[in-house]
């Protein structure tokens, strides 16, 4: 397992664990970011410390600090 943020841009992985606050975790899961789901890191924006991810056809942006707490098995 490695943090989602460590994926290469364009690479995918299978989400394993979400280690964030309860409400944020619930929010992510309700958007489809569930353990076992495939997630793609679309891009990292270094200036803003943000990432764009794709999951179930939906594009989301998160801060890097939050993406570091989502753990994936790289594909």
């Amino acid at each position: 397992m490695s943090p989602l943020s460590k994926l290469q841009p364009g690479a995918t992985g299978t989400l394993r664990a979400l280690d964030c606050s309860r409400s944020f975790r619930r929010r992510l899961m309700e958007l489809g970011l569930l353990p076992g789901t495939e997630v793609r890191l679309v891009r990292r924006v270094s200036v803003g410390d943000l990432v764009e991810i794709e999951c179930r056809g939906c594009h989301l942006s998160l801060r890097l600090s939050e993406a570091e707490r989502l753990f994936v098995d790289p594909a």
Binding site: F24, R27, L60, S61, L62, E66
Partner: peptide, 10 residues
């Protein structure tokens, strides 16, 4: 502050 979570729609 609340973690940022934005949808980037097409």
């Amino acid at each position: 502050s609340v973690p940022l979570l934005l949808e980037l729609p097409p």
